[in-house]
């Protein structure tokens, strides 16, 4: 069950927003809203046009991919981590399925509205994209190491 709620904490406490100007934080506060998801609830499915970008306030999310008739968990992310960043790009369906592993509390931003705000205020847009690039870069590095299959018996070192 999805419920909207009122954010009581300050956006300043969220690591993703650390260092942003007050005017930028106000802009984000106007765009964001809180959502809760129940344990095991699907947040979005692979291919969905779901347009939200999320920051986890509490709980964990499992990113999953379905292949060869089975669903595999390929990454879990937790408090203060971000997901759904493909919504920051125009017309990209979701590449993974996301599921709440625990009772989940997130901050959600509508991707098109966030992109619009970035276009209108390029300084805000650049600050946000720098943070997003850092998230994508860390995620990509982790995924690169993961696909090395380094624990496989055939892998040297």
């Amino acid at each position: 069950m999805i419920r909207t709620a009122t954010l009581t904490g300050s956006y300043k406490q969220i690591p993703f927003f650390k260092g942003l100007d007050d005017s930028h934080l106000s802009k984000l506060e106007a765009l964001g809203h809180e959502l809760t998801f129940d344990r095991d609830q699907i947040i979005f499915r692979e291919g969905d046009e779901s347009s939200f970008f999320y920051i986890i306030l509490s709980g964990r999310v499992s990113l999953e991919v379905t292949a060869l008739g089975r669903t595999l968990r390929v990454q879990t992310i937790g408090e203060n981590e971000e997901f759904g960043w493909s919504s920051m790009l125009p017309s990209h369906g979701k590449q993974f399925q996301a599921r709440a592993l625990d009772s989940l509390h997130v901050l959600a931003f509508d991707g098109p509205r966030l992109r619009e705000a970035c276009e209108e205020d390029n300084t805000f847009g650049y600050a946000l994209m720098k943070r997003l690039l850092s998230v994508v870069s860390h995620r990509l590095l982790a995924m690169r190491v993961q696909v090395l299959d380094m624990y496989s018996p055939g892998v040297k070192g």
Binding site: S62, L63, E64, R70, T71, L72, R73, V74, Q75, T76, G78, N80, E81, L101, A142, V145, Q146, D149, Y151
Partner: peptide, 23 residues
């Protein structure tokens, strides 16, 4: 503990071991 991949019955962490540092 974390694993590189897990099925739906695995409710622990999935990802390389360095991703655990944030917890």
């Amino acid at each position: 503990t974390t694993v590189d991949y897990g099925g739906l019955s695995w409710r622990g962490y999935v990802g390389v071991v360095t991703t655990l540092f944030r917890y």
